[in-house]
């Protein structure tokens, strides 16, 4: 048996309990929501904890309120399966729901929460290994080592942002609510992420993510395309979240975010700007897809070869935009969570 290390467990019943426990020992305390990221990380000794604060029994953190016309609020403890089973989210924010449908596997989605997904640890082929393996290379900078094995000589860690819902929610301009003993603040979700594989969130360790807020859906179209080796279980090797609005045939707003190509969800701003004021023709889409490759700077620390992953950024942005434009797919369409969407109706 691969056992968890020992720690003090605090089963919080109120948000107050949880923020107080965090404030007592911010460096030694970790939160647990569904545990599908925290427990594997503790078992493999990637992370340690003097105490763990369980959010499962905190009242008011689970649930979906509002409607797409006015905007929707999702509690951080809402499970990924809860999201898939919510018809109004499917109607109003299809890109986000598709991203959730493509996360891990059905059993894991019954456990994993949206808050946990957004705060998910970054990943790297030199890090997500068992302890003996990591010890044999003297660990790396993300732990107690001093070298980054992906880019030796680099002063920083390049572990990749691995949450599927993050790029989708960035493209939809969602906001997150953070709570601490100091009070509450609301920030755009893109600002939650930091350009660093180790300190990958900007929130302080005393803050708890309590809510995810989506603005009115309006006439926005959205989608999410995910590249991975198998049709289930695997983390993204590339995630493309796109949201756009058309006004009389021309694009009036566009957002494209790329996941798993950097330590944070990367905005493909030039590609999105290229679409503005234009009709979504095959040529315009192909040009935007080419532009989207620039900000993606993946390193060789996930599944698949680096060169191919770079090429796929263009193909996936092209495919996602073609889908939103109603154009036929260029190749046999890949599947991005359709199985889960059909199962969980």
């Amino acid at each position: 048996m691969m056992r968890l290390p020992t720690f003090t467990y605090v089963g919080a019943k109120t948000l107050e309990d949880a923020v107080t426990a965090l404030a007592d020992d911010p460096e030694g305390t970790r939160l647990v929501a569904g545990g599908t990221d925290l427990w594997p990380n503790l078992k493999r000794r990637h992370q340690g904890a003097r105490s763990v604060v369980g959010l499962r029994r905190v009242a008011g953190l689970r649930g979906i309120t509002g409607d797409p016309a006015a905007g929707v609020t999702i509690g951080a403890m809402t499970t990924l399966t809860d999201i898939l089973r919510c018809p109004m989210l499917r109607d109003g924010y299809p890109g986000f729901v598709r991203a959730v449908a493509s996360i891990s596997s059905p059993v894991l989605r019954n456990m994993g929460t949206l808050g946990g997904n957004l705060c998910l640890d970054t990943r790297c082929t030199y890090y997500n290994q068992n302890e003996e393996w990591r010890q044999s290379i003297g660990y790396c900078m993300k732990e107690v080592g001093d070298t980054c094995w992906v880019a030796p000589g680099s002063p920083r860690c390049w572990a990749v942002q691995a949450s599927d819902s993050a790029p989708a929610l960035c493209s939809l301009d969602a906001h997150v609510v953070l709570h601490s003993t100091a009070g509450e603040r609301v920030i755009p979700i893109a600002d939650l992420y930091n350009d660093d594989g180790i300190v990958y969130l900007t929130k302080s360790r005393t803050e708890i993510l309590t809510e995810i807020r989506l603005g009115p859906a309006g006439a926005r179209r959205s989608t999410y395309w995910k590249l991975r080796r198998r049709g289930s279980i695997d983390f993204p090797v590339l995630g493309v979240g796109v949201a756009l609005e058309l006004d009389g045939g021309t694009v009036s707003s566009a957002k494209i975010h790329l996941g798993a190509v950097h330590s944070f969800p990367v905005a493909a701003t030039a590609a999105a700007a290229h679409l503005l004021g234009k009709s979504l023709t095959e040529d315009v889409i192909a040009e935007a897809a080419e532009l989207a490759k620039d900000p993606a700077s993946p390193l060789d620390n996930t599944d698949f070869t680096l060169q191919w992953r770079r090429r796929m950024v263009g193909s996936y942005v092209d495919g996602a935009l073609r889908e939103l434009a109603g154009l036929p797919p260029k190749a046999t369409p890949s599947v991005h969570g359709e199985g889960a969407l059909a199962l969980e109706v």
Partner: peptide, 13 residues
């Protein structure tokens, strides 16, 4: 009633 992975559930929860 929901399938979950018992290896990733802290029993006391």
């Amino acid at each position: 009633g929901e399938p979950q992975l018992s290896c990733l559930v802290l029993a006391r929860e």
